[in-house]
Amino acid sequence: MDIHLYLMCYRTEALVASQLEAEEFGSYMAVGTRKKTFGNVVFFEIDPTFRSTEMHLEQVEAKCKPHPDGTPRRSKYMSLYRVMERVPLSAYGKLHLTTRDGRVLSLDGRDFDEDFSSEGPFMYAELCPLTSRVVSHLNPKAFTQRITDPATTVHVPRIFFADTQVELDKDGRLASYLPYANPSHIEDCLREVEELPNKLGKTVDRNPPLQAFYRTIATGFYLGDSTGIRFYPYPDVATLDAEHHTWWRSASMG
């Protein structure tokens, strides 16, 4: 049985070895073998050949072995805490989005070095290692560079975040279909960022509830640092409904 490496990065970080395929692993992590756990799971598939003594990956073959009854090892935690920053960007494979009931959508990633035509402001859901929701003038590329810039006093080595929707209607109100709690506060934050050009960003919520999270995703997910960015584009709703209907129905539940 092949050993896969998965990097969980939805608010908590862990590098897990598993003999399950990504879809099975996502389902297992979301719902368990007995229905005791619930919750969305987001994880990267890591190049299985990647090795790091720092993360004890030289022991992966020894530790991630089938059970005595021949069933595959579902999860073997290899490393916890500050894992994401220590895996080189080149080792990151697909991003898997798992719903609360274990449906998995896999997104392909690509290198990203583009400036958006859209001017913003943008709203980002920081997923790892930070967990705030922020609004900012900065486009995803600039935002990534800014927050991972070692030259600034406040930075992180690497950031994983999602670009989330902030459509406004003609009255300047947040579009009614967006499931954010306290939309008027988001409108205030957006207005403040717009009115103060020197203010690069504003925290909307330090620990926002991620309800209906997958319904809020705009362009996609970004993983990056000062050396580069991996971008995982997110399909539009029509594509999700048509081509990933089961997942989308599940994702729409919350």
Binding site: L178, P179, M253
Partner: peptide, 8 residues
């Protein structure tokens, strides 16, 4: 806010 929102 649709499904999953507080209103929902």
């Amino acid at each position: 806010g649709g499904k999953g929102s507080d209103a929902h």
